[in-house]
Design a protein around this nucleic acid. Structure first.
Lengths: 270, 270
DNA sequence: ACCGGAGTATCGCTATGCGATACAGTCGTA
DNA sequence: TACGACTGTATCGCATAGCGATACTCCGGT
């Protein structure tokens, strides 16, 4: 979700300085979505002016876009503070995504079953280039408030599920992804060195699952396995996550790895 | 989300048959969102032609819109079956909604605490006219696969949270909502008679919570309480739901109603 | 009373998105 | 292997639909 991503789609400059565009591309849709996407970067309501300056769109234009999105329910006025915030109607579309995504649909019942067996947090996340997006979370009994939210995403290079996915790709792709990732450590133990990461991925490939210790949260242990599509390409991952206060890594994997692998296999085949 | 809702925004016919439009309204945005919204009605991938005929938009137009939404990640090609489905990027916007919605943010930690105390399913749903949209679900140990999904919505007239919300409105509003609701029974026990519903709501107003027995799911018992904003208007509801196989209604309410009400109060005040 | 900043509205020009049409693969059937 | 009925893709001219500049209204702060 780099801010430049959409920008680059809005106009593609060529070497002669001209802006060349795909004639099939509808600009105004991209502009509207760019307005909605501006909220990715902030954590408070925004005014029209702010949206205008952040998107680089004209004031009038932003006004019309916001007016339109507002009358459709995709943007709301914040009741307390003044300003605009994303609207409830966005959830409807997420539901459509979840309902219609074959992986999510196939995985959900199996994850519930897995959850019943392991009694720890279980989740499904979908691979999107450099990140993994949580599409389904089944909490454990004691859950901290961090990111219970669906749609939350984490870098693919530093989570168990990410390693599991990378372990299904060839060396070149792995290197490419690792290079392009913004490898900021999230905990003191986060592995960021490309070579160490490749070791981890090799290990994952041999085991059939990935074991991650405190990579994104202190005190957290997680194991992950990849979900493959028909063509044996990884498309998603499932995780079981627990607390190091309760588990040794050995015990954790001994208990859960077979179940996890089994679940991942079941989801993968059609 | 009636199909006519967006349609009516696209063109507002006046008495002389002319189509009069708000000049601030950007049509192409509405058309794009209408394309995305078409998926609300279906449970399978769609072809361009199907989208065109369902939306009433021209084939070429739909092609461009889908092309654009696709390059932005809001629509994807279904890997298995051929056709288009909603894209992963929609989840990003839901996350923005959840992150920036004051009620959701305030409620989440309190719901987690409540969940710890009651050990049954706890959820938060947001009021949207005739429906309640689930914005947060904390599952119980044994969860059936129905609608674990966020964004799922239920009619406001037949759930405990809905009654709790209605109990905070005046008679006219309540009547209006009940009348406009499409009151199809979801279980044999669903109350659809306006007068019986009003009795229920009156009872809810006196108790400070609503008790619903098998209104949307057989065997389910749920109690709900309303969340109010600064102006004392209901904006959302929280529920605790359990199984009638384990609880008598009396025991269920005796145990959970005080906790529920307490949680609702805490969330309501700033 | 003043100012800066909110959101709203108006209006003419031309860039921009629309519709009609044509092209290109892929499946199933005869 | 030819056919037709589907997919999705591309082109292009015209006029409409959306842009930018400008101006208006309302509010809270100093």
């Amino acid at each position: 979700m780099s801010p430049n991503y959409l920008r680059s789609l809005l106009s593609t400059p060529t070497e002669n300085g001209e802006a060349e565009r795909d004639p099939l591309f509808v600009q105004s849709i991209a502009r509207a979505m760019e307005v909605l996407s501006i909220f990715h970067q902030v954590d408070r309501p925004l005014s029209l002016q702010e949206i205008a300056s952040m998107t680089g769109l004209g004031r009038s234009n932003v006004q019309r876009i916001v007016f339109t999105l507002r009358s459709l329910g995709y943007i709301t006025r914040d009741p307390d503070d003044r300003g605009y915030v994303p609207g409830l109607r966005l959830l409807d579309h997420s539901l459509d995504f979840l309902r219609l995504n074959p992986v999510v649909v196939k995985a959900t019942p199996i994850l519930l079953e897995l959850r019943r067996a392991v009694r720890e947090r279980v989740d499904l996340s979908i691979w999107d280039d450099l990140r993994l997006v949580y599409a389904s979370r089944l909490q454990s009994k004691r859950e901290i408030l961090t990111s219970t939210f669906l749609g939350y995403s984490v870098p693919v290079f530093c989570v168990s599920g990410g390693w599991a996915i990378l372990s299904q790709l060839d060396e070149d792709e792995v290197s490419d992804i690792i290079e392009r990732s913004h490898r900021a450590p999230l905990t003191p133990l986060t592995i960021t060195d490309p070579d160490l990461l490749k070791d981890k991925i090799r290990e994952t490939r041999e085991n059939g699952y990935a074991l991650a210790l405190e990579q994104i949260l202190p005190g957290e242990i997680a194991i992950g396995a990849a979900i493959l599509d028909q063509a044996q390409r990884p498309v998603a991952a499932i995780h079981v996550a627990g607390s190091l206060a309760e588990w040794t890594p050995e015990e954790f994997t001994r208990q859960f790895a077979p179940l996890l692998i089994q679940a991942a296999r079941t989801i993968s085949r059609g």
